[in-house]
Each structure stands twice: as structure tokens, then as C-alpha cells.
């Protein structure tokens, strides 16, 4: 079964403040992601990888095409669903982690993860398993390094048992040891039946994690 079926997805930006200049970023993307697999997207900067993930998560509004998510016996077209249906899907079915943590000021790392519906102890354990230093657990991530923020970000995304995860360069600022921890956590999620659609700058070197690699070129997908 496909967890994600993207068909004919197009996205262009109209910059009204610059003479309505148009920029086309996705030019008809077709993509099928089987449930329980890990698909990796790669391609040059600007080829449209993040835009594709953001359209799927609906941070960007697609212009046309369909993005069908099937999980937990439900089916929703994220390209056309109304905002409240998208929010409901985000809470239960689909999560997204990016390279950058959206900082919530003044909330400690453990509490941020716990706010995703975990008790504090499992939240702390999840952060430890991703390599966050013990003395940072109760500190608000505003002062964290890029890599430490990335750990918190990934923990927030993994905290809920959502079956489909979109991952945009989530290991980009991690040192090799923590990168290995992150990939191990993603691999465990995939092995437990999770579906991953991930952009990686460097190919993830965790044995058996990646089921398929696709390449984006100028707004189109080609198999690599």
C-alpha cells in the first residue's frame, strides 16, 4: 500500500511585491511512497526538494495536483483538504522535521518534547538517546548550537507515533556520532512500520535504512 501518492504536483510562487514575478519550483511531480519504507530525495540546492516536502505538509499551498496520504485506515488529499483537516492529519498521521528548530522561547528541551504528549521521563530518555548532553535537558534551546537544536527538533518529531514522517536535512549539523544516533532512531521508526520521505545532503550511511533514492532536477523527479 502507498502511504503517499503524489500526482501532477505543481507549485509556483507569485511575488506580488516584485511585479508579480513568477517562480516555478515544482513542474508536475509524481511520487509513490510505500508504507513502511524510506525514500531519500537528493538533488542540487534549489531543485525543489524542500518545496516538495513543504507542499506535502501544506506549509506551501500547491497550485495543482494531488497528494494522497493513506494511514491508519484514513485517506486525505493534502493538496485540497481544508485547514482543519490538515491540522488533524498533522497531529495524528504526518510529521515534519526541518533543519531548523522553530524556537519556542523559555521552554526547556524536555518540556518541549513532553508537550508532544509524552511524560517527562520518556521525553528525557528520547533526547538522551539522540545524544543531547544531560546538563542541557532542562535548558531552553534558544542558546543551543545548531546541532543541539537539531536533536531537539528530531525528538519533537519522533515523540508522537505518527506513521508518516517528512525529514528535511535533519542530520545536517550533527557530528558523526550523533548523526549515527539519529539515523539509528529513524531506522528503528522505519522498521516499526513507519514511512519516511527524507532529504539528505549526504547519503545516510546507516546499513539498510534507505529503500529507494530519487533525484530532483529543476522541479521534476527522476530516479537516481
Amino acid at each position: 500500500m502507498n502511504a503517499l501518492t503524489v500526482h501532477g504536483l505543481r507549485k509556483r510562487f507569485v511575488r506580488h511585491l516584485q511585479d508579480a514575478r513568477e517562480l516555478s519550483v515544482l513542474e508536475g511531480v509524481d511520487l509513490e511512497v510505500q508504507a513502511g519504507t524510506c525514500t531519500v530525495l537528493r538533488g542540487c540546492s534549489g531543485s525543489g526538494k524542500s518545496s516538495l516536502l513543504r507542499c506535502v505538509y501544506r506549509t506551501y499551498r500547491p497550485d495543482s495536483g494531488s497528494i494522497v496520504l493513506r494511514a491508519e485506515g484514513e485517506r486525505i488529499d493534502l493538496a485540497t483538504a481544508d485547514d482543519r483537516a490538515v491540522l488533524s492529519a498533522r497531529r495524528r498521521l504526518i510529521g515534519m522535521a526541518t533543519q531548523f528548530l522553530q524556537i519556542t522561547p523559555r521552554v526547556g528541551a524536555v518540556d518541549l518534547v513532553a508537550q508532544e504528549g509524552l511524560e517527562r521521563e520518556p521525553a528525557a530518555e528520547l533526547l538522551r538517546s539522540l545524544g543531547l548532553a544531560e546538563e542541557l535537558l532542562e535548558v531552553a534551546p534558544a542558546t543551543f548550537s545548531g546541532g543541539e537544536r537539531q536533536i531537539v527538533n528530531l525528538a519533537i518529531t519522533l515523540a508522537r507515533p505518527r506513521p508518516v514522517l517528512l525529514l528535511d536535512e535533519v542530520t545536517a549539523s550533527l557530528d558523526p556520532a550523533r548523526r549515527a544516533l539519529a539515523l539509528r532512531a529513524l531506522s528503528a521508526r522505519r522498521d516499526a512500520g513507519g514511512t519516511l520521505l527524507a532529504v539528505f545532503h549526504d547519503p545516510p550511511d546507516h546499513p539498510g535504512l534507505v529503500d529507494r533514492v530519487l533525484e530532483m532536477r529543476a522541479g521534476r523527479l527522476v530516479s537516481a
Binding site: L17, R54, Y60
Partner: peptide, 14 residues
């Protein structure tokens, strides 16, 4: 009208 992250990330109206 939209999701807050969408209006911030991909505002449609001028």
C-alpha cells in the same frame, strides 16, 4: 485564511 506556517511561509495575497 490559512495555517499559520503556510501564511508565513507561502503567503498568497499581496
Amino acid at each position: 485564511a490559512g495555517l499559520t506556517d503556510q501564511v508565513l511561509g507561502d503567503p498568497q495575497h499581496p
